[in-house]
Amino acid sequence: MSENREVRLYGAGGHSQVIQSVLKQNGYTISDLFDDNPKNSHKLFKDVKHGVRSHKSNFPHQGVPFIIGVGDNYQRFEIAKILKSEFSKAIHKSAIIDPSVSIDDGTVVYAGSTIQTNASIGKHVIINTMSSVDHDSIIQDFVHISPNATICGLVNIGIGTHIGAGAVVIPQVKIGKWCIIGAGTVVLKDIPDYSVVVGNPGKIIKKNIIKNLVSA
């Protein structure tokens, strides 16, 4: 993370709570908290400010780095496009990360997670609680690896894809962009863009309707 010991947090829901906890354990202060719907913020959050979507002309883009504390991949993608700001990272102290791993800005790594040698983690990625990313895997921007998911070695996961809780992806599989891999799914072969996959073995059941919203 940057040397600045302050971070601004965008998002005031449950996901943001966990990021706040990680940051505080690492000695960081949350200087400001923003949300697109402050009235619907979690009860534990106070003094939540309006987000950039409703204050585009006078939003304070510059200043302390942001972390986008929003679990939904598409929403995180949209917010990151609008914010003209620097971004920080949040990595839990209990995470096991090989020194060879690269982790880009905006990414969060939660408690008990493991990222093995030569893995590459993109921007605004969520590596959730107790998940595992093995050697030489590439996790592209805005991906969410849910709790207890296992990503084996040499896997490539495309932008915006969501890997559900407890899912398993075997070695050398390529998963396309903006896919949804259901909880507990076992992925045994390559998955094309915008696929929704469930089951063991994983089967494509439909296309992700987000295809109509993104051009990434």
Results as ranks from 00 to 15, higher is better:
70 V>H: 02
70 V>Y: 00
70 V>L: 07
71 G>W: 02
71 G>P: 02
71 G>H: 00
73 N>E: 01
74 Y>L: 14
75 Q>C: 08
75 Q>N: 10
76 R>L: 06
77 F>I: 06
78 E>S: 10
78 E>L: 14
79 I>S: 09
80 A>P: 03
80 A>I: 03
80 A>M: 02
81 K>I: 05
81 K>G: 03
81 K>F: 08
81 K>A: 11
81 K>N: 08
82 I>M: 12
82 I>Q: 08
82 I>R: 09
83 L>C: 12
83 L>I: 15
86 E>A: 09
87 F>I: 08
87 F>Y: 15
88 S>I: 05
90 A>E: 14
92 H>A: 14
92 H>L: 02
92 H>M: 01
93 K>E: 11
93 K>Y: 01
93 K>C: 03
94 S>I: 03
94 S>G: 11
94 S>N: 05
95 A>W: 13
97 I>F: 05
97 I>M: 07
98 D>H: 14
100 S>Y: 00
101 V>N: 06
105 D>I: 13
106 G>T: 11
106 G>S: 10
107 T>A: 08
108 V>Q: 04
109 V>S: 11
109 V>N: 04
109 V>G: 11
110 Y>N: 01
110 Y>R: 01
110 Y>L: 07
110 Y>I: 00
111 A>L: 04
112 G>V: 03
113 S>A: 14
113 S>L: 07
115 I>W: 00
115 I>R: 01
115 I>T: 02
116 Q>M: 13
116 Q>H: 08
117 T>N: 10
117 T>W: 01
117 T>A: 11
118 N>H: 11
119 A>D: 03
120 S>C: 05
120 S>Y: 09
120 S>M: 05
120 S>H: 12
121 I>P: 01
122 G>M: 05
122 G>S: 15
122 G>L: 12
123 K>T: 08
124 H>D: 10
124 H>V: 12
125 V>G: 05
125 V>A: 07
127 I>A: 13
127 I>H: 09
128 N>D: 13
128 N>G: 03
128 N>Y: 04
129 T>E: 12
129 T>I: 06
130 M>R: 09
132 S>F: 11
132 S>K: 14
133 V>Q: 08
133 V>T: 12
133 V>P: 11
133 V>M: 12
134 D>N: 07
134 D>I: 02
134 D>H: 02
135 H>F: 09
135 H>D: 06
137 S>M: 11
139 I>H: 00
140 Q>S: 15
140 Q>R: 15
140 Q>I: 04
141 D>E: 04
141 D>K: 09
144 H>P: 13
144 H>Y: 09
144 H>D: 07
146 S>Y: 07
147 P>D: 08
148 N>T: 10
148 N>C: 08
148 N>M: 06
148 N>E: 04
148 N>P: 02
148 N>I: 13
150 T>R: 05
150 T>K: 13
151 I>Q: 00
151 I>C: 00
152 C>G: 02
153 G>A: 07
153 G>M: 05
153 G>K: 12
153 G>E: 10
154 L>P: 03
154 L>A: 14
155 V>K: 11
156 N>K: 14
156 N>T: 15
156 N>S: 15
